[in-house]
């Protein structure tokens, strides 16, 4: 347990929509529908999934700014300073009216009034760690490139000395060469400080590079999770393999093995009673008409999938492709 910094048990989050004349909600948006996750100290957990699958809601729960409607979320990290976030768009996540040293030290300053000299010392040290020169500390965010801004955002996240940093697609707004620099910086910082990362992304290749474990999300649920080489190397859930196949590869013509009959996520207003992926799945059988639970795949207890056919050994993805494509 000691190496678990965060634990989510069957976490549900729903938001009320509309209200009748009595002020009672007319319905709910079901953003998270039973998430079970364990975040291990000093490791990187990847969270992948398409837009609208509940990644950002999950990030808010992890940050402690949103409480689960149902289920249990426990964290050993300090409530205020222990978890920090780096956003996707470094353009809007840095206030243009503040000089860089103020931006970087804001998490410290916001909690406790600290002297300017002390804040500047913190900023100088952090700037060095993320590879920014000390002279730039008095400039404003618009004077920096995207990659440098993301370094500033990372320095800001580090300033309260957090145990965990949530990285919300930190490289998807950057050029490919800058992406690599930022990823290397993140890896170095992790080695130096032993920080835990939660890396939210839809970029499979980056997840493969950076993460130790990965959880695949679909409609507010984890459908498959496990060590990154197992999940991305031998995907068990049909949705994971669909995600992997939709990653374009250099020099290879697009081959979309699974014919897509329905590419929309089911509505999150009224959740289906059966497997959430049923409508899009080419392997669906009669046993998929009931709700699915996370079960170990084969003999490995770390690798779990929410698919009865895969976990019962009924479905082999490679052969299944031929059988299922009919």
């Amino acid at each position: 347990m000691s190496n678990h910094v965060m634990q989510l048990n069957d976490v549900h989050v729903r938001f009320p929509i509309g209200a009748n004349w009595l002020g009672r909600p007319k319905g709910f948006v079901h953003a998270l529908n039973g998430v079970d996750l364990t975040v291990r100290r000093g490791k990187t957990l990847g969270i992948v999934g398409e837009s609208g699958c509940g990644k950002s809601t999950l990030a808010q729960v992890l940050m402690g700014i949103l409480n689960p409607t149902e289920g249990r979320f426990s964290s050993t990290a300090d409530k205020e300073a222990g978890v920090q976030i780096v956003f996707q768009d470094p353009q809007s996540s840095l206030n243009a009216r503040m000089p860089i040293w103020r931006v970087i030290t804001e998490p410290v300053f916001a909690r406790k009034r600290t002297s300017v000299a002390e804040l500047r010392n913190i900023a100088v040290e952090l700037a060095r760690q993320v590879g920014l020169r000390e002279e730039v500390l008095d400039r404003h965010p618009h004077e920096f490139s995207g990659g440098q801004r993301q370094r500033i955002a990372i320095a800001r996240a580090l300033s309260s000395d957090p145990d965990i940093i949530v990285l919300d697609e930190p490289t998807s707004a950057l050029d490919i060469s800058i992406q690599a620099q930022i990823l290397n910086l993140l890896t170095e910082l992790q080695q130096a400080r032993g920080i835990t990362y939660i890396f939210i992304s839809h970029d499979i290749s980056v997840v493969r590079y950076l993460c130790d474990e990965v959880a695949v999300m679909y409609l507010g649920q984890v459908v498959e999770k496990g060590p990154v080489e197992d999940v991305l190397g031998a995907p068990q859930h049909p949705y994971t393999s669909l995600l992997l196949e939709s990653v374009p590869t250099m020099g290879v013509a697009g081959d979309f093995g699974q014919p897509l009959t329905n590419t929309d996520l089911p509505s999150n207003r009224n959740l289906p009673p059966h497997c959430y992926f049923l409508d899009r799945c080419t392997f669906a059988g009669s046993e998929c008409r009931q709700a699915q639970s996370l079960s170990p795949v084969g003999g490995e207890k770390d690798h779990v999938a929410r698919c009865v056919r895969a976990t019962s050994g009924d479905l082999n993805m490679r052969e299944g492709k031929e059988n299922g494509a009919c």
Partner: peptide, 26 residues
Amino acid sequence: EMAYVTAAETFHAKKRHILRWHILPN
């Protein structure tokens, strides 16, 4: 709605801090 205000919320800044450093200058 800007991300820097969300960021300030994630490190549990008080309303007064957000008003003084983010809202008013902008």
